[in-house]
Design a protein around this nucleic acid. Structure first.
Ligand code: MN
Ligand code: MN
Ligand code: ZN
Ligand code: ZN
Lengths: 138, 138
DNA sequence: ATGAGATCAAGAATTATTCTAAATAAAAAA
DNA sequence: TTTTTTATTTAGAATAATTCTTGATCTCAT
């Protein structure tokens, strides 16, 4: 159990722990707040949806989880702190983490005016995952 | 004036034309639906917000404009049909189109399982535009 | 001109999320 | 430990972008 003492004025309460554990323990499927809420209730029946929203925001600000937005859908949450992008399969609607090839710089492919400062990169790929792509071509 | 006859069962009505023209004529600043509504009213005072939403959806489906989503903000709309990504300046909050360097393939930098089929790529860069970056370092 | 089907307009409904305010829990002080 | 202070949780109300509903209006092919 990590102690999170390096995260400044951040208090790891029971509820925040439960919400965090839901994300790290269970399959890394990038659940929405409502899905996190349902899973969290199994571990702590009294927890409220408002608290799940609060916790997810706090954890996101603390840098322990990432908020993932795909188009206009409900935000999803991800405990993978390594820099990565997301692949969304339009068939099974699953979200997969993807990483840049070693030594590749995803920002370098973009033509940017001299003097631009890049703070953050947000990438989503859409298509069919190998399983669904194969199922479509039987 | 393009005639759009190649776009199937698509009827370019007065309202759709106004909405489309707002996007192509005026500065390409990626307005939201409400902003498009305000500008469209200057050209056609009776137009309704519902119709602006309808038109934007129709135009998007017809492939004449692109819907651009940045995090959870209101969708923005873009008439630039060339493949491109977006740069969002956190200082002036403007959205800029950016293009891949010639011969660079933005998908190629990502490690994907064998057999994945990519249909679409969505990229947003965030940071400071040259003007704002300079203003910050006087 | 007429009728079928598409489009528009006004407002209601939806939905994810945020806000509010009171209750509770945890930390700090005494 | 008891008290005091502060942060957090909770339930429900409020918000905001978007979608839906329905009747009116327009367009186009007959
Ligand atoms: Mn992820
Ligand atoms: Mn654009
Ligand atoms: Zn799939
Ligand atoms: Zn700027």
């Amino acid at each position: 159990m990590p102690d999170f003492s390096g995260f400044g004025e951040f208090r790891m309460t029971k509820q925040r722990r439960v919400v965090y554990d839901v994300l790290v323990d269970e399959p890394r499927d990038h659940p929405t707040a409502s899905e996190v809420f349902l899973r969290a209730k199994n571990r702590m029946p009294g927890i409220s949806l408002a608290t799940v929203y609060n916790c997810l925001e706090t954890l996101t600000h603390a840098g322990l989880v990432k908020q993932v937005n795909l188009d206009r859908d409900a935000s999803r949450y991800c405990p993978n702190l390594k820099p990565h992008a997301h692949f969304f399969c339009s068939e099974c609607e699953q979200v997969f983490d993807i990483t840049p090839r070693p030594s590749a710089d995803p920002c370098a492919v973009w033509e940017l005016p001299e003097g631009t400062r890049i703070d953050h990169l947000d990438v989503t790929l859409k298509g069919k995952c190998p399983a669904c792509a194969r199922a479509g071509h039987p």
